[in-house]
Nucleic acid binder design. Structure first.
Lengths: 147, 147
DNA sequence: TTGACATTGTTGGCATTACCAACCAAAGTG
DNA sequence: CACTTTGGTTGGTAATGCCAACAATGTCAA
């Protein structure tokens, strides 16, 4: 059996498993996977709507609704850009940041049992391999702080 | 910085990246991520509705709609179980299997550039590490054929 | 055997996600 | 100043997913 296809299967399996963790952790705080991701992106950025949509691979109109609901919940704010009065900048509120950090802690706790199956050296190996895998196109996939 | 949190970040990043590939490959054939996953599960199983819902972590009623639409498209069939006349067995049709295989090929092609960044030895290492990570609870996360 | 209870799946109602097409407003271009 | 492009919103539709309520079976105790 081809090594690369085995790897792809493992990647897909892992993806679904991590997705389940993120979905559940988000849902515990009434956040969809997408909303959670938006919060993560906004954590260290202040993009405009179109940028955000491009990051996520979503339509502009989808972003409108997404941000609108999050704003109504007090998690984000929209403000017209000073430079370009058409553009809308999106930013986290303090409340949004706190909520994200809370969910992030839950995620870390839920992933711990899995990660704990590896010893420290293996963890480093795995991290490095995954970094290589996703290198050079990490745009828009940030969830956590920074490298 | 803690090795385990670095790893979790890498895992989440990878998850979003693979998810994007799966979503796009599915969408190219009018399949949502969830539907694609259902097809994958049915590939070597013939579960009843409740089992399927449990696999996916979804509500029974969600399954009803999901399977109903897939059946209307000719991808699956539902049949009352012979043993328990309340239960409904779900199975892939030939067409469903073909569609899944087609999408799977697309996914393999789209993942190839990423996987190709690793040499064969690294691929094996990564596969093994991911297998350890998701070991013992691979239920419901199968996408591809079999270990 | 019958009556209480549990399980299986469907239905209806709702909010969210996501797309597209159409639109307004602001910016850039000739 | 027209003309086009860009940035976002709105309205319409379909799909996803939850919950509560329900019908039909199955199970088990009295």
């Amino acid at each position: 059996m081809a090594a690369d296809e085995d790897l792809m299967d493992a990647l897909v399996r892992t993806t679904f498993r991590v997705m389940a963790v993120l979905t559940r952790a988000g849902a515990a705080h009434d956040l969809s996977l997408t909303q959670l991701r938006v919060l993560g992106i906004l954590r260290d950025r202040r993009p405009r709507m179109t940028e955000l949509a491009a990051f996520l691979g979503l339509d502009k109109s989808t972003m409108s609704g997404l941000v609108e609901r999050a704003e109504r919940r007090g998690l984000m704010v929209r403000g017209r850009s000073p430079e370009d009065r058409r553009a809308v900048d999106v930013a986290l509120t303090e409340q949004g940041r706190e909520l994200f950090d809370k969910v992030r802690r839950d995620v870390v706790a839920e992933l711990a049992p899995f990660v704990g199956r590896l010893d420290e050296a293996q963890q480093c190996d795995l991290t490095r391999l995954l970094d290589v895998l996703t290198a050079a196109d990490r745009a828009g996939v940030e969830f956590a702080s920074e490298p």
